[in-house]
């Protein structure tokens, strides 16, 4: 089994020894840095605190430097409680947010992926909602955890992160037809809602995730969403996840999550709008063969779904 990375991103190196006395905030930080390194250190294969510290010393010796034992638990055992609670908590959160990826890889491979990912990229946010923000990046960087299904795994990771964004991402005031009636298309630049993700992926991630949901009677929204509808106990077989490129928008409408398949020209047009092109440029990006009527229909639907908003203002004095 491959070993996860040993240096967590963002954490400064641990001190060699715990401070004996805490006289200053710097001493406090040193102690907290040491303990954080212990907590985020990956568990052993049987979910225990690793017996050796980063520098090769016995972990029991390191723990005894700063944690008091009692008559029932050693310093090592007390730290191990926190180490295990840390991992179980964050793994649970990633499990809940990635039912499709979990189904694809199976429990054991998914567990290895999650542990390797969180060992390299521990949380940098006050909320566990953002735990999977870099999962797609990690799958690209370290394909060994998902090979030979890396492309499929990446597609699902991107899709499942897009669901989190769509669930509670920012919504800006919606542009109405009246707002843009007088704007010349050659100069009009629209924004797309921040909660909307446009995905061009090589696998039908939406169908697959819905099949998994049906199989597991999973909740259809992100991990802390309100449940609608009764749970179904029936178990269905998930259809094979075969390569079939799709374009899909992950969005919300009236605060419910939706996935909307897009034709490739429509997708290109939306991408151009998102990139800040004018409306004329965006229509051109859709490609030849697209009729004015198609564009009108797409535009009307997107407008009705509330996807358009004003583009965010650029800072007036960008750093020079």
């Amino acid at each position: 089994m491959p070993r996860p990375a040993s240096r967590p991103a963002g954490l400064k190196p641990p001190p060699k020894h715990a401070p004996q006395r805490l006289h200053t905030t710097a001493d406090l930080r040193t102690l907290q840095r040491l303990m954080t390194h212990v907590l985020v250190r990956p568990l052993t294969d049987d979910d225990r605190l690793q017996p050796k510290w980063i520098d090769g010393r016995p972990m029991a010796q390191v723990a005894a430097e700063f944690i008091k034992p009692n008559d029932r638990l050693t310093s090592f055992e007390r730290l191990e409680l926190y180490n295990r609670m840390y991992w179980f908590r964050i793994i649970d959160s990633v499990y809940e947010d990635n039912p499709g990826l979990r189904a694809l890889l199976g429990e054991r491979r998914f567990a290895r992926l999650v542990r390797a990912y969180l060992a390299k990229y521990p949380s940098r946010s006050f909320t566990m909602r953002n735990l999977c923000a870099r999962l797609g990046q990690f799958i690209r960087e370290e394909p060994r955890w998902t090979a030979p299904r890396t492309a499929a795994a990446l597609a699902l990771a991107r899709f499942e992160w897009a669901r989190t964004v769509a669930f509670d991402g920012e919504a800006r005031p919606v542009m109405t037809p009246n707002d843009i009636a007088d704007a010349p298309p050659a100069r009009l630049r629209l924004g797309l809602q921040p909660y909307l993700s446009l995905l061009a992926v090589d696998y039908p991630v939406d169908d697959y995730t819905l099949a998994v949901k049906e199989r597991d009677a999973l909740r259809g929204e992100a991990s802390h969403a309100v449940e609608h509808g009764p749970r179904r106990a029936t178990r269905h077989k998930i259809p094979p996840f075969r390569r079939r490129p799709i374009h899909v928008a992950v969005h919300r409408y009236r605060n419910r999550l939706f996935y909307k398949r897009l034709e490739a020209p429509a997708f290109r047009m939306l991408e151009a709008i998102q990139a800040g092109r004018t409306l004329v440029q965006a229509v051109a990006a859709a490609g030849r063969g697209v009729t004015a009527e198609q564009v009108r229909d797409w535009f009307a639907t997107w407008m009705e779904l509330g996807w358009f908003c004003a583009r965010p203002a650029r800072p007036k004095n960008p750093r020079k």
Binding site: G10, T36, S123
Partner: peptide
């Protein structure tokens, strides 16, 4: 406490009960 250097443990970790820590 529960974070250091911008890394979050999402746990409620016990404090060292010292005067310096209380002041901070």
């Amino acid at each position: 406490w529960g974070s250091v250097d911008g890394t979050f443990t999402h746990d409620l970790l016990p404090m060292p009960y010292t005067f310096a820590a209380a002041k901070r």
